[in-house]
C-alpha cells in the first residue's frame, strides 16, 4: 500500500533560539535544522507498514522553501522512496490552516489511501495540521496514534488518550497523526545516503494562502526567579516542606 508522510523542517531541539527586540521571527544564522521529531516517528511507521505489506511506496511531502530539500533528502536516505516539495511563495507561517489548505489541495489529487502526520511540529507546536487536512478532505482522522494495523479497506489504530489506550477503526482513505511509538528509529546508512541522491524529488509550486494568524512579537520567556538549594539530604526535608507551605503556598 502506498503511504504519504507530511514532514516539516524545524530547528534542532538543542539549538539556541535568538531573535532581536521586536522581531517576529528567529534569526536563522547558526540554527541547525532537522526533520521534526514526531515526523520521524510517522516516517518510521510508514516504512514499517510498507515493509509489512511487501511493496508500496512511501512518499514524503513538505510545504517549505528551497532549503527543505535537504530535509526531504534525509527522509529519502532513511528509506522513503520519493519526495515532493511544495514550494511556498512567501513563507510558511504558524497559521496551520493555511498550511493545511496548501497540503490538502495537493493531497486531494493523489491516490494514497493513507496520509501520515506528526502529532505536532517541533517549532510551532500547533498540533493542528493533520486533523485540519482531514477535515478539509472530509476523511476520517485518528490523532496521537502509537501504532496501527492495516485491514481490508480499513485501518485500526491504537491512540494514546487520557486514561489509557483507545482502539479506533477507520475506513480508508484516512489520516493518522503519530506520537512516539514503541519502536526504535532507523538511521540512514551510508548506502541509504548514496541511494537518496538518485531517488525522485519533485518540486511544485504550492498555493499558500495569506496567513490569518500572525505573530506580532517574540519574547524570551521570563527567567525563573533564582531558586535556592534548601539543603542536603533528608535533613533538608522539614525546611522544604515549610517553604512549600508558607512561602510558595502550594501545599
Amino acid at each position: 500500500m502506498d503511504i504519504i508522510v507530511c514532514v516539516k523542517r524545524v530547528p534542532d531541539t538543542e539549538t539556541r533560539i535568538r531573535f532581536s527586540d521586536g522581531a517576529t521571527a528567529i534569526e536563522p544564522e547558526g540554527v541547525k535544522y532537522i526533520l521534526s521529531p514526531y515526523d520521524e516517528f510517522a516516517l518510521e511507521a510508514a516504512l514499517r507498514a510498507s515493509e509489512a505489506s511487501e511493496g508500496g511506496q512511501v512518499t514524503v511531502m513538505t510545504l517549505g522553501e528551497e532549503d527543505s530539500q535537504e530535509t526531504l533528502r534525509a527522509a529519502l536516505a532513511a528509506g522513503a522512496d520519493a519526495a515532493v516539495l511544495l514550494s511556498a511563495q512567501g513563507s510558511v507561517t504558524m497559521d496551520g490552516l493555511a498550511t493545511a489548505k496548501a497540503l490538502a489541495s495537493e493531497l486531494k489529487n493523489r491516490k494514497e489511501q493513507l496520509v501520515l502526520f506528526g502529532v505536532k511540529a517541533g517549532d510551532d507546536d500547533q498540533q493542528q495540521v493533520g486533523p485540519m487536512v482531514a477535515t478539509l478532505l472530509e476523511r476520517p482522522c485518528a490523532s496521537n496514534v502509537v501504532s496501527f494495523e492495516m485491514g481490508e479497506g480499513v485501518i485500526r489504530c491504537d491512540r494514546a488518550v487520557e486514561g489509557g489506550t483507545e482502539v479506533v477503526e477507520m475506513d480508508l482513505p484516512a489520516i493518522v497523526t503519530l506520537t512516539k511509538g514503541a519502536f526504535e528509529l532507523r538511521y540512514a546508512s551510508l548506502k541509504g545516503i548514496m541511494a537518496a541522491k538518485k531517488k525522485p524529488l519533485e518540486v511544485k509550486d504550492a498555493d499558500l494562502a495569506q496567513a490569518r494568524l500572525t505573530v506580532e512579537r517574540l519574547d524570551y520567556p521570563p527567567e525563573r526567579a533564582q531558586g535556592r538549594i534548601v539543603g542536603e539530604g533528608v535533613e533538608a526535608v522539614p525546611e522544604l516542606v515549610r517553604l512549600l507551605r508558607d512561602e510558595a503556598k502550594v501545599l
Binding site: F19, T214, D219
Partner: peptide, 20 residues
C-alpha cells in the same frame, strides 16, 4: 483578542493576533 503561546519548546513566546 491577542494570545501568547510558547514555541520552540518554550524557548520563545509568540504574541499572536488574528486577521479573521
Amino acid at each position: 483578542v491577542v494570545g501568547v503561546r510558547p514555541i520552540y519548546g518554550g524557548k520563545a513566546l509568540a504574541r499572536v493576533g488574528f486577521e479573521a
